[in-house]
Design a protein around this nucleic acid. Sequence first.
DNA 1: GTAAGTAGTGCGATTTAATATCATGTTTGG
DNA 2: CCAAACATGATATTAAATCGCACTACTTAC
Lengths: 144, 144
Amino acid sequence: MFGFSDPRPDLIAALEKGGYRVTTPRRAIASLLEQKHEGFSVEALSDELPSVGRATVYRTIKLLHAAGVVCKLAMLNGSHKYSLCGVGHHHHHTVCVECGAVEEFRVDAVERLIRQISEDISGEIVSHRLELYVNCGACPANGD
Amino acid sequence: MFGFSDPRPDLIAALEKGGYRVTTPRRAIASLLEQKHEGFSVEALSDELPSVGRATVYRTIKLLHAAGVVCKLAMLNGSHKYSLCGVGHHHHHTVCVECGAVEEFRVDAVERLIRQISEDISGEIVSHRLELYVNCGACPANGD
DNA sequence: GTAAGTAGTGCGATTTAATATCATGTTTGG
DNA sequence: CCAAACATGATATTAAATCGCACTACTTAC
């Protein structure tokens, strides 16, 4: 099995490392996030944190995203979800189209493939995105 | 080289095949599209067609997308672009992060890889998305 | 400890992309 | 030519995200 459940990255540490202050709102966001390994939308997050302004939630998620501890996923319908993710290793995600559950996976073959393609197209690959949309078969939408 | 420039798909034919009427606004959209193999936003398209209502442009692009002759690409920044694309064969895209030029490519290895991954993760893969963000090295932004 | 400076916050307005509403216009089959 | 079905367009609306700005709260210097 390629999937793996990540050790929770330390969001507070990520902020400190980036030279950002660790404030009460940021703590609140971080601790809520740590209960939400699955995909979440910033909007929903904000709704669960009425004590924190929306803009601050967006700003903080952007910081965490820049710090690499939160990933931004493109859903099929064009909306986005975010997900906590392990630092330090590149990975991709599966998203259940029924229940929205997000899982990370890493397959070295993906990286090899990208490298191989990069030799065959003109220009230099600066980034890539690979997302798998699945039906996880274990979600409420499947009759549990 | 994996890339290929597609024969222009016949957008009008695609509409007819889908059982939709071929109307004046749709003709206008189709003929503008056929000059725009590169990525484009619906917004920009609409601006170039003042005689056609915004809603109609969106509706028509959605039809063409459903018909498979137009692809919707997710940009790194979260916005979208559309691109004419060949019918009948699955492919992926490179997008130049500087100039926005879109190219199609197809590598069978991608499909093999997806199939291989599908055997190793729980759940069933219903769809996937692979986009390569490149610096095409031949665009105005690179000093031409 | 206080003043000054910097970083962070929150409200509300704004932007942008896209969709919904719905009265009106167009096409097509007969 | 008529009626039904389909398509259109102006406008309102929604949703996600960002911006502007006054205010607050740390941090540092003195």
